[in-house]
């Protein structure tokens, strides 16, 4: 089990996560879903040790993250954050190269990582001047370059054009095909359904359901998680769930 969360509790201000138990199987794509403010992004920051849990622990291969140096964590877990500060005058290549901070061996070069994501042409462009989608791809390339067995992504497809969204999905599936474990925070139920093998549904900082996608994504669970009735569209490909009233 690459990543395990046991009896985790965490509170910040009026918001709190409680009783979180998650197991991320090796080689899976685990999606964390839920409404805005349900604690998805906070949970993700706990998963790589940026926040320290009040109670309970996050384990990677059985070792608690709080016992690991950030350098060691980053060799195991790479992260694609949704919010990113604009660095002063960095090229895209410099942003990718930065993710090699903790790397021990150059298993993959920054250029190769960028090529994997199809953005070699952006290498010498100023990062701040890239479009939102291009920036996202640069950050994903950075995570690829970091070469960790587990990759966390916070809303990897949000605010992207359709073609970029497809590109990101493809990269995610390719990475998974190479044996990486992925944990994705996704608000879109259909993405959870089409992209993930496992799903965790959160509501108000507590888990509604977790496990394999087929078990978790039931109309019943979705209604609990989103306080909205859903129906299943037949033969709609990846767009399986729709609000019941439309």
């Amino acid at each position: 089990m690459s990543l395990e969360v046991k009896r985790l509790e965490f509170s910040r201000g009026t918001f709190s996560l409680k009783g979180i138990d998650i197991t991320v199987p090796d080689g899976s794509i685990l999606g964390i879903g839920g409404q805005n403010g349900s604690g998805k992004s906070t949970l993700m920051k706990l998963l790589y040790g940026f926040y320290r849990p009040d109670v309970g622990n996050v384990y990677h291969n059985g070792i608690s993250l709080s016992e690991l140096h950030p350098r060691d964590i980053s060799r195991k877990i790479a992260v694609v954050s949704q919010e990113i500060s604009e660095p002063f005058n960095f090229t895209a290549l410099e942003v990718v190269r930065l993710s090699g901070y903790s790397k021990e061996n150059e298993s993959i070069s920054p250029h190769e990582a960028m090529e994997t994501c199809g953005i070699s042409h952006l290498a010498n462009r100023n990062f701040s001047e890239l479009s939102g989608g291009e920036k996202r791809l640069v950050l994903i390339a950075a995570a690829v370059y970091q070469d960790a067995s587990t990759i966390l992504m916070d809303e990897p497809t949000a605010f992207l054009d359709v073609d970029k969204e497809q590109k990101v999905k493809k990269i995610i599936q390719d990475l998974n095909g190479l044996g990486r474990t992925l944990v994705l925070v996704l608000h879109d139920i259909n993405l959870l359904n089409s992209l993930c093998t496992h799903v965790v549904l959160l509501r108000d900082g507590a888990i509604i359901a977790s496990g394999e996608k087929e078990e978790v994504l039931s109309l019943e669970n979705l209604e609990k998680a989103y306080t909205l009735k859903f129906r299943i569209l037949e033969d709609a490909g990846p767009y399986k769930f729709a609000p019941a009233e439309i």
């Binding site: 920051k45 140096h69 980053s74 500060s85 660095p87 960095f90 901070y101 966390l152």
Partner: peptide, 16 residues
Amino acid sequence: DALQMGEPHARSIGVN
């Protein structure tokens, strides 16, 4: 350099 990208990112690439 990493801090310029924001603390979550810096932490995720292994910066204390």
